[in-house]
């Protein structure tokens, strides 16, 4: 007689309990922090506001780096491994460079590169996914097996292998990351296109004599890109992380470029010099988290299951 199970009485109990029990994600405190996503405008969701603020701040920092950074990020100004102090708030690294200045300039690398990686992957994956979903048959089969091939390896291992094969450089790291990340977009767009292909509004348009290309542009694309755009926002954080990982391993931007991942690597040999790693780590953390929260908020907006409540 304790907790009712799914098979409990006449369907009524089950239904009642479903209404009483709140799914974890809809718990009230979480909800209040995030805003009710569906009903509220984005600016009424505190977490989203915070993450947007963080991202805007990082973009400003990147844009205004020369004005903000107290020192030249590449020059040696002081003794090596100075702990945080008034002159060097985040301390200095093994070459006596100011870590705060390097972080500020690092934003000019990490954030734009993440945007480029995601934009390229979305473009490549999006087009291939559209083609696969819309044409179907042989093309679909071939493209999907190709995505399987990429999915068969852990993403970071494959990215390491590709960028090692191309030789370590910023451009090759970006290429490697695009190569390992496009299949996700292709899959997402393809399944969205497959759904739209069965929709009656597409059939109705084709029956009225709308050609396949025009139908693709007006009916298929607008109704299938939503999930991929959300995914792209979520993946921006991932791109920052993966780029940092490649740099950490020496496969990204070459030293002395102030890439955050490479900066962490410098501090990883001696953890007693914690400030060398911790501050770039925090920079990565804030950016990744902000992108993820923003992506979540976007998904709640676009996901039709939440959108329904708005329409009525």
């Amino acid at each position: 007689m304790s907790e009712p199970t799914m098979t409990e009485p006449p369907t009524a109990v089950d239904l009642a309990d479903r209404r009483v029990r709140k799914p974890l994600a809809r718990r009230s405190w979480l909800r209040r922090l995030r805003g009710t996503s569906a009903g509220h405008p984005l600016w009424r969701q505190p977490l989203t506001v915070v993450s947007v603020t963080i991202l805007v701040a990082w973009l400003l920092i990147a844009a205004l780096a020369p004005l903000i950074a107290p020192y030249d990020p590449l020059a040696q100004h002081a003794a090596t491994y100075l702990p945080p102090s008034g002159a060097h708030p985040f301390g200095t690294d093994e070459l006596g460079r100011d870590i705060l200045s390097r972080l500020v300039y690092g934003a000019r690398l990490s954030i734009p590169l993440a945007l480029v990686i995601v934009a390229l992957a979305l473009a490549v994956g999006g087009v291939l996914g559209l083609v696969a979903g819309y044409l179907g048959r042989f093309v679909d089969e071939a493209l999907m097996r190709l995505t399987d091939l990429v999915f068969a390896f852990p993403q970071i291992i494959l990215a390491m292998a590709v960028s090692a094969a191309f030789g370590p450089s910023t451009r090759n790291a970006v290429l490697a990351l695009v190569i390992v990340s496009w299949p996700v977009y292709a899959r997402v767009i393809r399944s969205a296109v497959l759904t739209v292909r069965g929709e009656d509004y597409l059939h109705a348009a084709r029956l009225l004599g709308v050609g396949p290309i025009r139908a693709l542009r007006r009916d298929v694309v607008p109704n299938s890109v939503g999930p991929a755009v959300v995914l792209a926002t979520l993946e921006l954080g991932n791109a920052v992380l993966m780029l940092a990982a490649l740099s950490f391993l020496g496969l990204g931007p070459r030293p002395p470029a102030p890439e955050w991942g490479a900066m962490i690597a410098l501090g990883s040999h001696d953890l007693s010099k914690w400030w060398v790693s911790v501050f770039p780590g925090l920079a990565i953390l804030t950016v990744v988290l902000a992108f993820n929260i923003l992506g979540d908020a976007l998904r709640d907006r676009i996901d039709p299951r939440y959108a329904k409540g708005r329409e009525t």
């Binding site: 009485p9 006449p10 369907t11 009524a12 109990v13 009642a16």
Partner: peptide
């Protein structure tokens, strides 16, 4: 309610 649902009213 648990007593009513099932043994009293069902749907």
């Amino acid at each position: 309610w648990r007593r009513i649902r099932g043994a009293g009213i069902s749907m």
